[in-house]
Design a binder for these strands. Structure first.
Lengths: 238, 238
DNA sequence: CTTTACCACCTGTCTAGACAGGCTGGATTT
DNA sequence: AAATCCAGCCTGTCTAGACAGGTGGTAAAG
C-alpha cells in the first residue's frame, strides 16, 4: 500500500537529506527513475511533482530536475503539523503546561474572521496551554474542540498530544486548515503567562482544522512571543 | 495552448466564483467532467488536483468533490503575486512612493537567514518604496535586484510594477520564492515613513525570488504596520 | 424488522504509448 | 571561423484502459 509514487518521493527526499544529491545537483531523468524503480514514467512524474510542491526541486523543461533546498526544520506554526511530535523529533527541550481544560461554547471571535459562515455557541472543550521551549514560555495556545466530534479530552491527552489522540485513538482524519497570521498587542493573560511587559506584542495564528468530510472541528489560536516567532513558507508563481 | 486541464480548472473556478456551485455543493464526478469537456479522466483529475491545492475543493474517496471555499481576496504578502496588479484588480485605493532608487551591494542580512549559502556584496539596484493604502502609509518595501539579471530600473518602473517589467518587458520567468515572516520593533525609518510612534512593532516578510533556472535575483523585505498586517494561508495535512 | 449481500458509482493508482516542444552538442554547411 | 541543422535527450501533456478500494442504496435473507 501507500502507493508507489509516495515511496519514490520519500526515497528521493531521503537520498537528498542524506547528501546523495546536494543543492544544485540534477536528479536522474524521469525515464531513468521509471526504469530504476520499475514504474511507468507518469508514476515517476507524480513523485517529482510531490517534491516540487514541497519546494525541494525545480523542474526545467528540456533539462531535468534540480535540487533547490536542503531539509529545513522550522517550528511549525500551523496546527496541521503536530507540535508535540515535531519538538520530540528534533530533540528540542520543551514543556507543555495545561492551565485550562473545561467545557465552553465556541466563541464567535476570532474565528468568524476566517469563516464568516460559522455558527458560534456550539458545545466545545476548551484547552488552554502554555508551550515552554528551552525553559522559556513562548506560546499561549487556545483550543476549542467540538464535543460533537470529540466528546471528552483528558488532562493527560491535553498534556501529551491532541493530534495523536484525534488520529490514532479516535480514528479521525484531519484534512486541511485555513489559517491566518496577525500581530496584536499582548493582553493581560499573554503578559502574565509569557512574562511580557506592557506594550509588548504577540504574533497570533488563528486556524480552523477540518476533517476529511469537511467538518470543522478544532478552532485554535496560538499567541507567540514576538521575538521568538518565525514563520517560513515557500511560494510558487502561478 | 495552455493545456486542457488548465482550461478546465479555470472554468470550474470561474463557475464556483459565479455561484454556479456554492460552498458545500458537489462538483460533477470525474467521469462526468471527462465526458463534458471531452477529455480523458486523468486530464479531468489534473484540473481537480489544481483546485484541491488551491484550497477550493475537498475530494472524498467514494463520494466526489465538494466546494469548500469561496473566492478569497487578501492582500498578497508575498512578492510572488504582483502587489500592484492585485490592488488594481480589487479597486483598492493605493499609492506608491519611491523614496530610494540607487545602486547598492547586496547586504548579508537579513537574507542570509533564508539562504545561508548566499554571497553578499553582489551589484544590485536598491529600490525603497512606501505603499500607501487607503491614504494610510502601510508598508515599507526594500528591494535589492541583481544588476547581472536586471541591468537598469527606471523610476517610472519602480513606481509602476517591477513584476510587469521583469516578466513582460524583460521576458524573465519568475518561478518560486522562499519567504519568512517575523515581528520586529519598528526602526527609526519605519517610524518616520509609516508615522508610527516609538515602541511600535512591524510585521516583516523577507523573501528571495528565483527564476525558472533557479537564479536568485530579487531580495525583498516588506515591513508592514502591525495593525494592518494579515496573512492568510491554507494548509493541507501530509 | 433487521441484517447481509450485492451492485452501481465514486475516487486513487498505475500503465504503455503517443505527440509537442525545450535543450545541447556535434556534424555539416556557409 | 561562424552559422545552421539535426539527432537525441529532456519535460509537458494527453489518452484509453485497468484494477483497487470507499460509499450508499436496494434487494434478498434471516
Amino acid at each position: 500500500m501507500a502507493g508507489k509514487y509516495q515511496h519514490i518521493a520519500n526515497d528521493l527526499a531521503h537520498r537528498i537529506n542524506h547528501g546523495e544529491f546536494n543543492v544544485g545537483d540534477m536528479l536522474p531523468s524521469e525515464n531513468q527513475l521509471a526504469t530504476h524503480y520499475k514504474v511507468s514514467r507518469e508514476t515517476a512524474r507524480k513523485a517529482l511533482a510531490k517534491l516540487t510542491d514541497e519546494g525541494r526541486i525545480q523542474k526545467m523543461m528540456g533539462k531535468g530536475s534540480i535540487v533547490i533546498k536542503p531539509a529545513r526544520y522550522t517550528l511549525p506554526v500551523s496546527h496541521l503539523v503536530s507540535y508535540t511530535e515535531f519538538l520530540k523529533d528534533n530533540g528540542i527541550d520543551s514543556e507543555n503546561h495545561v492551565f485550562a481544560l473545561e467545557d465552553a461554547p465556541l466563541p464567535a471571535m476570532p474565528f468568524q474572521d476566517i469563516d464568516p459562515s460559522l455558527t458560534p455557541g456550539q458545545k466545545c472543550t476548551y484547552v488552554g496551554r502554555v508551550r515552554i521551549i528551552n525553559k522559556l514560555p513562548s506560546i499561549v495556545d487556545h483550543d476549542f474542540i467540538l464535543k460533537s466530534v470529540v466528546p471528552t479530552i483528558s488532562e493527560n491527552t491535553a498534556q501529551a498530544s491532541l493530534y495523536n489522540y484525534f488520529e490514532d485513538d479516535l480514528g479521525l482524519t484531519i484534512a486541511y486548515s485555513p489559517k491566518q497570521i496577525t500581530v496584536e498587542p499582548a493582553n493581560a493573560q499573554d503578559q502574565e503567562l509569557l512574562g511580557l511587559c506592557e506594550g509588548s506584542y504577540v504574533a497570533v495564528t488563528t486556524s480552523i482544522a477540518h476533517l476529511a468530510d469537511t467538518t470543522a472541528f478544532q478552532f485554535s489560536q496560538s499567541r507567540h512571543r514576538a521575538d521568538k516567532f518565525k514563520y517560513q513558507d515557500f511560494a510558487r508563481r502561478k
